Deep mutational scan, measured.
Amino acid sequence: GLEHMADEEKLPPGWEKRMSRSSGRVYYFNHITNASQWERPSG
């Protein structure tokens, strides 16, 4: 619920959580730099 939404908002600017269609794993994508990574971004 609300706790999940608050957790999402802690991601650094530009980052969003996405799911890989090929593997079904969650990864993180930065739409500003077009960077993507499996680890949760910090800072």
Rank of each mutant, 00 (worst) to 15 (best):
G1D: 13
G1M: 12
G1W: 12
L2I: 12
L2Y: 14
L2H: 14
L2K: 14
E3Y: 01
E3K: 08
E3Q: 11
E3A: 13
E3D: 13
H4C: 15
H4Y: 09
H4E: 11
H4T: 13
H4W: 10
H4K: 11
M5N: 13
M5Y: 12
M5K: 11
M5Q: 12
M5H: 13
M5S: 11
A6T: 12
A6K: 10
A6N: 10
A6Y: 13
D7I: 11
D7W: 05
D7M: 08
D7G: 10
D7S: 09
D7H: 09
D7K: 08
E8Q: 10
E8W: 01
E9H: 07
E9P: 08
E9L: 07
E9A: 08
E9G: 08
E9W: 05
K10D: 15
K10Q: 14
K10V: 12
K10I: 14
K10M: 12
L11G: 00
L11A: 01
L11S: 01
L11C: 00
L11V: 04
L11H: 01
P12H: 01
P12V: 01
P12A: 03
P12G: 04
P12Q: 02
P12S: 02
P12D: 02
P13H: 09
P13M: 07
P13N: 07
P13L: 08
P13S: 07
P13G: 05
P13E: 09
P13K: 06
G14V: 01
G14D: 04
G14W: 04
G14F: 06
G14R: 01
G14P: 13
W15G: 00
W15P: 00
W15S: 00
W15D: 00
W15H: 00
W15V: 01
W15L: 00
E16M: 05
E16R: 04
E16A: 04
K17P: 04
K17T: 06
K17D: 01
K17N: 02
K17F: 03
R18M: 05
R18N: 02
M19Q: 10
M19E: 09
M19P: 03
R21M: 11
R21S: 12
R21F: 07
R21I: 13
R21E: 13
R21W: 05
R21L: 13
S22F: 09
S22N: 10
S22K: 15
S22A: 12
S23E: 08
S23N: 12
S23D: 12
G24L: 05
G24P: 02
G24K: 08
G24A: 05
G24M: 04
R25T: 07
R25S: 05
R25A: 06
R25F: 05
V26G: 03
V26H: 08
V26Q: 05
V26S: 05
Y27G: 01
Y27S: 03
Y28I: 00
Y28D: 00
F29V: 06
F29H: 07
F29G: 01
N30A: 00
N30R: 00
N30Q: 02
N30S: 04
N30C: 02
N30E: 01
N30I: 03
N30P: 00
H31I: 15
H31T: 15
H31E: 09
H31Y: 14
H31N: 14
H31K: 11
H31V: 15
H31F: 14
I32L: 11
I32H: 10
I32N: 07
I32G: 05
I32K: 06
T33I: 04
T33N: 05
T33G: 02
T33Y: 03
N34W: 05
N34L: 14
N34H: 15
N34D: 04
A35Q: 15
A35E: 15
S36F: 15
S36M: 15
S36A: 13
S36I: 15
S36Y: 14
S36G: 07
Q37Y: 04
Q37W: 03
Q37T: 04
Q37D: 02
W38M: 06
W38Y: 10
W38Q: 05
E39P: 04
R40T: 08
R40S: 08
R40N: 08
R40Y: 09
R40L: 07
R40C: 08
R40K: 12
P41F: 01
P41N: 02
P41G: 01
P41I: 03
P41W: 02
S42H: 11
S42P: 07
S42K: 09
G43H: 09
G43Q: 10
G43W: 15
G43V: 12
G43D: 12
